[in-house]
Design a protein around this nucleic acid. Sequence first.
DNA 1: GCATAAACGAGACGGTACGTCAGGTCTTGAA
DNA 2: TTCAAGACCTGACGTACCGTCTCGTTTATGC
Lengths: 208, 208, 208, 208
Amino acid sequence: MQSRSSAPRTGRPRSVEADEAILAATRAALVDLGWSGLTLGDVATRAGVAKTTLYRRWAGKNELVVDAVAALFDELELPDRGTLAADIEGVVLQFAAILARPEARSGLLAVLAESTRDDALRERIRTSVVDRQKRLVLEGRARAQARGELPPESDPSTADRTVNLIFDMVAGAVVHRTLVSAEPVDEPWARSFTRVLLLGLPAAASHP
Amino acid sequence: MQSRSSAPRTGRPRSVEADEAILAATRAALVDLGWSGLTLGDVATRAGVAKTTLYRRWAGKNELVVDAVAALFDELELPDRGTLAADIEGVVLQFAAILARPEARSGLLAVLAESTRDDALRERIRTSVVDRQKRLVLEGRARAQARGELPPESDPSTADRTVNLIFDMVAGAVVHRTLVSAEPVDEPWARSFTRVLLLGLPAAASHP
Amino acid sequence: MQSRSSAPRTGRPRSVEADEAILAATRAALVDLGWSGLTLGDVATRAGVAKTTLYRRWAGKNELVVDAVAALFDELELPDRGTLAADIEGVVLQFAAILARPEARSGLLAVLAESTRDDALRERIRTSVVDRQKRLVLEGRARAQARGELPPESDPSTADRTVNLIFDMVAGAVVHRTLVSAEPVDEPWARSFTRVLLLGLPAAASHP
Amino acid sequence: MQSRSSAPRTGRPRSVEADEAILAATRAALVDLGWSGLTLGDVATRAGVAKTTLYRRWAGKNELVVDAVAALFDELELPDRGTLAADIEGVVLQFAAILARPEARSGLLAVLAESTRDDALRERIRTSVVDRQKRLVLEGRARAQARGELPPESDPSTADRTVNLIFDMVAGAVVHRTLVSAEPVDEPWARSFTRVLLLGLPAAASHP
DNA sequence: GCATAAACGAGACGGTACGTCAGGTCTTGAA
DNA sequence: TTCAAGACCTGACGTACCGTCTCGTTTATGC
């Protein structure tokens, strides 16, 4: 959002309710209208706020939606389910549940589309959304290593690359299944996916 | 696009050059301006065509861009490289090369974003883009089975689900790496990805 | 309309029904839609004719409407009612009856408006509509002179100017009353008008 | 124009310069392009104003042109020239001078043409243009009665009808001469017209 | 009687203007 | 200084007509 540690200590202070009202209104508008139908004027009206107030805080539609959507992903957690496979299945289902919500579906992809031409926006997304979820992979790996399901990493840079790879594989598969193939990510799918991820394609294919 | 099997054989026929000129102009505009900067008026001007001609053929920006982008993916092939691993690496790199082109990057995601609220558009994407590439998975599997790298499928419905799963995993990982993580899909990455996909995460992690 | 004295003696001859069908359709469209709502495409459809056929005969909306409206005024006559006053009243009422028809109202004024910037159109209107009605003034004067109600003209050029003046006064007053003031031209008004025209304002005002 | 007695006292007030700039631009565009060539987009550009600003104030071309043209007629006056005949001649020439201006010519007729199908527009014209000039007839009559050139009116309703009649006769004749016959209203014509109006047709014809 | 040539219907074409809408900025007066 | 309100400029939207241009078809004449 906006950091202003350097205090503007004079004049009327900014309304603190306004910020959350705007984000909530943005999410509501995303549900009702989708990304392309979302209007900053409409968001302002829903939030009971003037357009000026909105622009004083965010630079435009993209930035606003990133912030509105980012919060959704913060609820992801990795409860210890005892095995690596169960942990993966759990986080896959959690992630899919978030992507099933209409405010996330179109908002996320649209903002990603914009980010392909706007480096600042990409950075914002990376910080606000993507990188914050990599903790799940790290945590899962550490837990699996403690359980002996995975070997301790030898080379730190290799280990880092592997984290990114796994993150892309898990997140990518869930996003693709949900938003591109438009099929539900249910328990059977999560189980099959985990099986392939852990055992490899030939082993997973040999016995269902 | 538009099926015209039922022939309106009267009146001046539609210009056949116009269709391709418009699609080419669309791709060019995507490169120059990206999705959000793309204007149908501008596309028409670039194509040397009136805006009405464009609207006579496509309902709007989304439909036009789907058609313009879909053609890009038709060049994907699966040359026989001798092993399943090599085949996968090859197609991953091809796919990534297409996604690296600017006319594909923002266009594809944006259209996917819209499709989350527009069933007709989703269906159009599925037929024009997604389903047409599943052939690669089918072909690769058949070849691997012939080589003995994969067992023959037992149950056809299970086999079908597996095709979809693998497709989501491969395409999803590449898309996520390229467009979300915004990192290059190069040969090392392709090799690592294939290794995990074929051997499973623990085996792949144990020895680099 | 269009002169075809120079004969194109070969090829398919122009449909004679088309001409009248188009003019009739134009008048019908004027009634339904008024000048500004009238489209040549609609006229063509109403006439059961292709747009090309229409443009082969008329250069545009203005020319077409002039021809369509001009015919309406040809039905004006000057039956001998015995006195100059009665003759004037009669023609005033006839003229007003024509102007009361919706196909004449907006069509005539609109075409006149265009004619203020288009000399060819003005000439066409003058020939097709205006000058053809001056005969009424000439006929009425001749009849009144025969009856001894008006003196024989002394100077031909003065006489000519007077014809134009009277024409402007009669036509102008009726048009203004009908289309600008938007009040009906009924018998009492025609009587009052004729009284002022023949006796002069003071005499007409003194005794009703 | 638009009544704003009911005050929206909040928000940014409407620019007062814009109103007059738009009307002036409209008159200029009428001179350059005529009614049919006049574009609201062009008017906006000339006025240095956005199209939306224009549409916020006027519903369309017709309403705008009525307002732009109406002001032209407000400069009509009736200076006392000593006799009724001289007064009439004076006002006839003034009126003709206005109608000779290109911004009045096509604009006025075109708007009248539209008014034949649009009651609201007709009412607007009546109040903005027509009725405001009837004062000249009333004033002229009062002055002539004071001079003894006209008898005092006996019946008020008859007198009222006569005012309307004379107004239609004077305005109609000048409009018809100027815009339909497309001949100049010069002093000789004004003199002849006044002669017929005051003495009646036979008397005026007998001696030039 | 059969070729020629123009007219015909249909409808696509390049244009231009329309009137609306959203984005983002600016100007009020009140808090 | 912020706020709500709303006017402002900009520029794209999708539609409607314009007048022109192919098409394939029809219809009188003239060789």
